[in-house]
């Protein structure tokens, strides 16, 4: 008994997707921590001594914590309000791209050879990546020339929603 018109003026049709890759987070955490552990074991002195193991171990713990809190999931919502991306348990880093900023949306295939594209959040002056795996991904080309690549579970639906909005 619903009275909604199929294509009423107030109709918002959006796509949401969530992609995770916790093995990648675990591997990254290990890779970032491993160089710091020998520093901790080689150091001499007590815990509070600047030459002691506390500082490298603390740095390792902070790095792992940041990685775990931000890298566990990439949540995307696409629709008339633009494309919003939220990362991790805290929802940060987050970015919303309004529809007016987006010039073009397409599905790209991230190949394993471009290894840096699967490392989570990555920023360069021309490209931004929110990717957690290889394979099909959503690529937005902004009017400023920047390209944003986001790992979404179903990029074709996301592109269809963006083009329809």
């Amino acid at each position: 008994m619903t009275a909604s018109a199929p294509f009423g003026p107030g109709r918002y049709s959006i796509y949401t997707g969530r992609a995770t890759n916790w093995p990648l987070v675990a591997a990254l955490s290990a890779a970032l921590t491993v160089p710091l552990l020998p520093l901790g074991s080689l150091s001499r002195g007590g815990w509070l001594d600047p030459a002691g193991p506390a500082i490298p171990l603390l740095a390792a713990a902070v790095v792992v914590l940041i990685n775990v809190l931000t890298g566990l999931s990439v949540r995307t919502a696409a629709g008339p309000n633009g494309v919003s991306v939220h990362c991790g348990m805290l929802g940060w880093p987050r970015r919303t791209y309004r529809l007016e900023e987006i010039e073009h949306a397409e599905v790209t295939d991230l190949t394993p050879s471009l290894w840096r594209l699967s490392l989570g959040f990555w920023w360069t002056p021309r490209h931004t990546y929110f990717t957690v795996r290889t394979g099909p991904a959503l690529r937005l080309t902004l009017r400023t020339g920047r390209s944003v690549t986001i790992t979404v579970p179903d990029p074709h639906t996301a592109v269809a929603v963006i083009r329809a909005a």
Binding site: T2, S4, G8, P153
Partner: peptide
């Protein structure tokens, strides 16, 4: 199926609401 590409979990969903509807 996202698993073949390395991700071990993926959920996707479409939502539609109509602000002009009585519901």
């Amino acid at each position: 199926d996202d698993r073949e590409n390395g991700a071990n979990n993926a959920s996707t969903m479409r939502w539609t609401v109509d602000h002009s509807s009585r519901e």
